[in-house]
Every structure is written in structure tokens, then in C-alpha cells.
Design a protein around this nucleic acid. Structure first.
Lengths: 166, 166
DNA sequence: CCACAATGATTCGACTTCGAAGCATCTAGA
DNA sequence: TCTAGATGCTTCGAAGTCGAATCATTGTGG
């Protein structure tokens, strides 16, 4: 293990960060324009739409934001917009369960095609099928590795399960 | 929209976004802990340290932030911290040229090893050399494609290019 | 039953980022 | 020269994120 990275490895890191930054900016613009949603809001709605039932705030936060307060804020906005509902949990009075409303599902369905189109145009289009397969495998491995790595005192009070899809 | 993305392509996109989000969060923590710098501030200092001479605000902003006002704010903070200097340009009275100070160079030198170490541990470690090479090539291609792609309603008023709409 | 810690969520303040509007300067054309 | 538009940067307000502190509930030990 070398102490210093090869120059090419650093360049890989920079390319990765800049490309994703550009992609993130593009999809953020699209979501704001077509659905008046932030990227996080879209992620939350998509997660709720895809889940079987309502989720608690903690389950919903996992993997989307790095602070609970941020989720509280966004969930409040989504509730005010009529896209989700919040209510007390039956089992645990401390917990708040969040459910997507019909309007929320419709909004996701409305903005999803445009979202996918942006991804297709910016990420999929310039790559070959084998490139995409390779990228998918590589990033899944990196992601899993990071999830497992010691959180290093990240303030997220980790909960039990980890969601896989979406 | 008959040809939506393959499920695997969408998963590639999600893996990419989540992995980079985790990586970004990790390096941000490291920079804040070891140098009291934000990621953008570090990028600006690194860019200035690496350049031959001072840069104008516009040159400095290119590729780092998506708004000029954000750069103005950060440059002000860096100047207040004594890490950069700002002064009028000789050729163009409108322009502000930014130069890194010795303290700025020293701070970059101080935090860079830890920064590289985080990247090595989270991104490089779980991948093989060939994976890294492939990733570098793929992301460089994606990045270049996005840079060329048009509809960046980004406020980057480029020197020679001219945007038609919006 | 009663402290007391752990857990789920919210409130609050500080910081960052962006977009629109504004000011100053440069440039091109009549 | 004079005027209008383009360009460089800053100011200002709105929105988002995070961390620390806080409130409420659950669980545990005496």
C-alpha cells in the first residue's frame, strides 16, 4: 500500500466528483422545473412510493440525508404541500410514520420520465453498454464498502436495516 | 417514452449518486476537522496553488461552483482568513484577481495528505487497479460529455460562447 | 414506583449555495 | 464621442443542510 496515490488515481477521483456534480446539478434543475422539488424531496417521495407501507422518519432518513433535522424540515415541506402525511406510530409513541399521498405518487410519476431522460442523456448516452455494466458493478462495490466502513463518528445514529433498491 | 432505461442502468445511476454522496461527506468531514475548510474552499485553494499565477474570479469559479455569488462569498471568507488576497486586475478594471498566500499553500499542504488518505481508503482500496483505470476513463468521458452538453442554465457566462435561450 | 439512560423526533442557530438585481467597466457601432 | 449592450463582480434575499440542544417516550434497574 503506497502512502500516496498515483496521479491517475487522483485524476479518477476528480473526474468522478466533477462528473457527478454536473449530473446532480442537471437533475436538480429538472426536478425543480418540472415538479418544484429538490433532489432530496424527490428521493424521499420515490422511496415512499416504492416502499410497501409507511416508514418512520429514521427509516426514511437512512441513506438520503445526513442529519435528522434536515429530514424533519423536508418532511414538513412535503406535508405542507400535501404530498405526504405524518402521524404517530401505533407501536412506538415516539416515532412518526410518514406515508405518501396520492398527490405524492402522481407527482413522482409526473417528474420521473424527465428525470430518467436527463440521466439517459448525460450518463447513459456517452457510454457503451459494457461501460455502464462495469460502472454499475464498480460503484455498487464502492458504495457497499463505504456503507460498511466505520462511520467515523458520523452523527447519524445508525439504525438497524439498510434498504437496497431505489 | 417506450425506451426507458433498463433497471440495471437506473441502479447504476443510484449506486453512483449514493457512493459519491458518501465519499463527498467523508472528505468534507476530514477537511473541516483538519483544516476548517469546506470542500469548495479546499478546491479553490488547491486550484490557486496549482495554477501558475493569480486567477480572476471567473476563472476560479469555472468548474467549482455554479454561481458567482457563491464564489464571492467564499473568496471573502478565504481572504478574511488570510489564505488568499484579492486585488484589482491590471488589464481589466472590472476584474478581481485572486492569489493564494503562503498561509494558504501551507494549509493545502497540511490537509492534502489526510484528504488523499480518505480517498484511498474509501475509493481506491475496494477496487482493483484495472477497475480504477476503467472508472477513470469512464468518468472522464462522462465529464467531458457533460461539459459539452448545452442546457446548462448555469449562470456561467462564458467568455466567447453565447447562449441563445433562457 | 421512581430515577435514569437510550431512543425518535423536533427546534434553533449558523453556515452554505444559489438566482435575481444592481453597480462598474469594457467594447462595439453610429 | 456617445450610447447601448456585454461582461465582471457584489449585494441581497430565499432555500437547504447540518449539529447541538431539547422534548417526549421507551426501557431498565433499584
Amino acid at each position: 500500500m503506497a502512502d500516496v496515490l498515483e496521479p491517475g488515481q487522483l485524476n479518477t477521483y476528480f473526474s468522478l466528483m466533477e462528473a457527478v456534480s454536473l449530473l446532480q446539478h442537471a437533475v436538480t434543475q429538472q426536478l425543480r422545473a418540472e415538479g418544484d422539488l429538490s433532489y432530496v424531496q424527490f428521493e424521499l417521495l420515490a422511496r415512499l412510493s416504492h416502499s410497501d407501507g409507511p416508514l418512520t422518519m429514521t427509516e426514511l432518513a437512512d441513506g438520503v440525508v445526513y442529519s435528522r433535522s434536515g429530514l424533519t424540515h423536508q418532511a414538513g415541506l412535503l406535508e405542507k404541500a400535501g404530498l405526504v402525511t405524518r402521524g404517530p406510530s401505533a407501536e412506538d409513541q415516539r416515532a412518526t410514520v410518514v406515508a405518501v399521498t396520492e398527490a405524492g405518487r402522481e407527482l413522482v410519476a409526473k417528474v420521473l420520465p424527465g428525470h430518467v431522460e436527463v440521466v439517459r442523456r448525460l450518463l447513459v448516452a456517452p457510454l457503451s453498454t459494457s461501460d455502464l455494466d462495469a460502472l454499475g458493478g464498480i460503484m455498487a462495490r464502492v458504495r457497499d464498502h463505504m456503507r460498511a466502513e466505520p462511520p467515523r463518528s458520523v452523527a447519524t445514529r445508525r439504525s438497524s436495516a439498510r434498504n437496497e433498491h431505489l
